[in-house]
Design a protein around this nucleic acid. Structure first.
Lengths: 129, 129
DNA sequence: CTGCATGCAAACCGTTTGCATCCCC
DNA sequence: GGGGATGCAAACGGTTTGCATGCAG
């Protein structure tokens, strides 16, 4: 079983609070307010650990930084191609699609991710000027 | 118009030859056989340039390295979660899905990507032993 | 007490960039 | 001759890792 240290507890708590799908660095900054001496390495190590334990999800999509999500159920995301911000999308997940895919390839299909690319409200506003 | 230098020509030629969706480094190694003095920077610069010119596509998907694709039409991919290898998937692209998404968010939807996660034949073989 | 977890800093790796040189118009 | 393109090497940014110390069980 995974040991419940203070750091892990607070990381999970803070990740659950936000809907912004923070990067490791963003979460580090958030958590630092409560644990000023926490190290970035600890954040990365524990996020990775919790991903493996199935407690959180790592968003394996575009962009150069990985993002983390306390929601573990399968759902889709939109990413702003200008600022990188991400949001959940409450679309019905198409389960049949993995079966279709399985028929088209010799890969053993384990799952799928969908990422919509878009422009977030803030960036629309900013670029309109 | 984009100047067609020897380097660009050969990069495009070699990228078109392979279906493996190579990373910049992989393509660098391939191209080096014909242009031993080419620099990695040139590879990155020109790939980026060709992406902007719409001549090739950059795969904005998971994994730590970006991959490039000479096919510019919208299509989906499978990625092996063990070795990272990618393959095309000839599934019909669902266009309506972006309309559905648009109704669910305040982001302006520009497109979408689908990435299937799987295990490639080689890794299936290797892990079975 | 004992081993896993932490903080810190250095290492890593993919990518980008600055710069002197080169080549093509 | 001039402006973009190149090769090279250094810089960069996100992530990982090694190690001495600390803390939970």
């Amino acid at each position: 079983m995974i040991r419940l240290t203070t750091q892990r507890q607070i990381l999970l708590e803070e990740l659950s609070k936000v809907s912004s799908h923070p990067t490791a660095c963003e979460l580090y900054e958030i958590v630092r307010k409560r644990l000023p001496r926490i190290g970035l390495g600890t954040v990365y190590r524990n996020l990775e650990l919790m991903v493996h334990a199935g407690m959180i999800r790592k968003l394996e999509l575009g962009g150069k930084q990985k993002r983390f999500d306390a929601r573990t159920d399968l759902h889709y995301h939109v990413r702003c191609s200008f600022c990188g911000k991400m949001a959940d999308l409450s679309l019905p997940v198409e389960k049949k699609i993995t079966e279709h895919a399985a028929q088209k390839t010799s890969y053993k299909i384990l799952g799928h991710n969908v990422e919509f690319i878009g422009e977030c409200p803030a960036c629309q506003q900013e670029r309109r000027t």
